[in-house]
Structures are given as C-alpha cells and as structure tokens.
C-alpha cells in the first residue's frame, strides 16, 4: 500500500500562497463575469463560423462586422415579455432555467479556469490577495464536475414537465434518456485516464502531462479521447445530438414555451457547459496548462480549438434519430468504453 508521504505534501503546499475567502470570492466573480461574456460572445462566433462554412456572411449590420449583434441580442432578451403559460406550474417553470445556468457555473468552480495570480499591492482594499486558479480545489475535481453536469439535467427536465406543452414533455423525456445514457459513456471513457494518472484531481492530471506533447494522455488513450468527445457533444446538447430541441421534430423541445431572459439562461448554461467540456478535454487529454511560462496561452488555444470543433461539427453533420442515438450509446460506445477500461487495466498490471 503506497501512500504519498506527508513531507512530500508539505513541500508542495509551501510553494502556494494561502487561499483566502476573499480570493475565492473574487475568483467566483471572475468566472461568472468572464464565462458569461464568453458564452454571449460564443453565440456571435457560432453564427460567424457557421456562416463562413455555408458561404454566407452572418451578422453584418450591427456594428463593424456585426460585432455589436451581441449587444442587440442582449437588449432584446432582457426587454422581451416574460410569458408564463396559463396551465403551467409557474414556480417550477420559473426555477428551471436558473438550474441549468447554476449547475453549469457550479461545475466550473472545480475546474482550473485561468492561471492563479496575486492582485498587485497598489490596488486599494484588495491588494495582495491571492486568487487561485481553481475556486474550490477538491481532490476529486473530475467526479465533482461530472456530478454537477449530471444534476444539470434537471433544468431541461423540469422545464419540459412544468410547461403543460406536448413538445415540452417530449423534450423533457429526450433529456432524461440522452443525458442519463451518455453520462455512462462519459464516466467510463474518462475512467481509463484516471486509472493511468491515479488521481481524480485536475492539478494531478496537469502535472502528469508536464513533459511536453509526447506526454499527453491522448497518445496513450486515443479511444477514450474520442469517446469522451462524442459523449461530451451529447451531454452539452450539441449537433449531431441536439435532439432535446430539434426544431424539425419537437419545435424547440423543453424550451418551447420560454421567452426572453429565461430562455437566455438555458442558452448561457449550454455555452458554459460547452466551455466546461472543452476545459476537461484539454486538461485530461491534451496536457492542460502544463507548458512552462505559456501555459495560460496554450490552455486558451486548446479550449478554443474544442469550441471551434463543436461549431465545425454542427456545420458538417446532420442530426441523428433518437433510436440511432440510443443504438450508438448502448451498443457501440459503452462496450468500447468498457473494453478500453479492461485493456488499460491489463496493460497497467503487466
């Protein structure tokens, strides 16, 4: 039984300044502000990327190259009438969007977002406060993020059930099926790299891949990487798995009756989840922020690549049918994931 010795832990702890409550609160505010802004800006990027892939121009009229389209959308969302359907269960109907947004941001609490820094001393009130790179440095960070994303399924689910609309109910049923099924694949696919590293902490994953590109886990676990990406697409409700709000079949699924900012909160939650999945994929498989000196830049590039990949796939592939979705999950991805875990275990034992 090998356990990390106490002296090792202590020497490791000494190098990091003390994390104070103020630092964590500042970090939380930074995450909220920046990720919301990126989520909003992501809608603009998504439109532009899709437009260029389809030989269109995308938003062009508001501001230079349509850059202010984001502001126009924001004003529209905030000022739109907030309609609650007559037969809907209004309390649950109103709570549901905030569940999606809240779980998406709570998941980000245990994920390394931006490098740590100390606020310079000349800043009044907050000078000298150390802001950590992870708001809550749990040593089981990956499990926490997966658990929080699992809890995120209540947003669409309750929204669909509360709105007294058949499209909503179908959307909610699809939410339950899709998220529950693909959680299995996410968990099993990420299990193999966890076995290799021997830890559930994002920091340990980062440290384990510190030796350059050849040390990235993607070379040892290519199957797990592909499986995780596919399941990640399904869990963030991206094309080709966006059956929850498939316009051609169920109008807008769970979001049919929503308008204004409540609908906007579903959107922000979805984009925050996309960023979370991108960060997990970057840290677990692509070396994270381990490059000395330019770690902050490489993690942004990696996350940006995964974000772009999601838009790329959306422009390239059609939706799939619900029965194909289930076939893919239970008859293809899950057996491959289990076999991958078993092979990883055998290789590690030998």
């Amino acid at each position: 039984m090998e356990i990390v010795t106490f002296t090792e832990v202590e020497t490791f702890v000494q190098h990091i300044p003390e994390v104070t409550a103020a630092g964590v609160i500042i970090k939380a505010i930074i995450i909220l502000a920046v990720i919301s802004a990126i989520a909003g800006f992501g809608t603009y990027i998504e439109r532009k990327v899709l437009a260029f892939m389809q030989r269109r121009l995308g938003p062009m009229h508001v501001g230079p190259y349509g850059l202010l389209q984001l502001v126009a959308d924001g004003v529209k969302l905030f000022t739109k009438e907030d309609i609650v359907p007559q037969n809907a269960n209004s309390l649950v109907f109103k709570i549901a969007p905030s569940i999606t947004a809240a779980t998406a941001f709570i998941a980000l609490a245990a994920v390394p977002v931006f490098p740590d820094f100390t606020i310079p001393h000349w800043v009044p009130l907050l000078g000298g406060v150390f802001v950590p790179s992870i708001a809550a440095d749990l040593n089981i960070g990956i499990l926490f993020v997966l658990g929080m994303m699992a809890a995120g399924l209540y947003g669409p689910l309750l929204a669909g059930m509360a709105q007294a609309n058949k499209w909503g109910i179908i959307g909610a049923a699809r939410t339950a099926i899709q998220f529950l099924s693909y959680e299995v694949v996410t968990g099993l696919s990420i299990l193999a790299p966890i076995m290799l590293v021997g830890s559930l902490s994002f920091v340990d994953f980062n440290a384990a891949q510190a030796g350059g590109i050849s040390h990235w886990l993607i070379w040892q676990q290519p199957v797990a990487f592909v499986l995780f990406l596919i399941a990640g697409f399904a869990e963030t409700n991206r094309t080709p798995f966006d059956l929850l709000e498939h316009e051609a079949e169920v109008v807008s699924g769970y979001a049919t009756e929503y308008s204004g900012m409540r609908w906007g909160m579903f959107f922000i939650g979805e984009y925050a989840n996309m960023i979370t999945i991108s960060i997990i994929a970057a840290v677990v498989f692509l070396g994270g922020y381990s490059e000395a000196g330019i770690g902050w830049l490489t993690i942004i590039l990696k996350v940006g690549f995964f974000f772009f990949l999601m838009l790329w796939v959306r422009a390239s592939w059609p939706h799939i049918r619900p029965d194909q979705l289930m076939w893919l999950c239970w008859k293809v991805l899950m057996p491959i994931a289990v076999i991958n875990v078993v092979i990883t275990g055998i290789v590690m034992m030998v």
Partner: peptide, 26 residues
C-alpha cells in the same frame, strides 16, 4: 458527497422523473 450527487441526483431521481412523464405533472 460527489457519489451522493451522481447516484441519487443524477441517476435515481432522474429515473423517478422519467416515470413521472406518464402523468400529467401540472
């Protein structure tokens, strides 16, 4: 704590709610 989240919130309750689909929840 995380196991509680994943198992009860993520799986067990979601299955309950899936059964609720057959009722008029409103």
């Amino acid at each position: 704590g995380v196991v509680q989240l994943i198992v009860y919130v993520g799986a067990v309750m979601a299955l309950y709610s899936f059964a609720m689909m057959f009722f008029d929840a409103t």
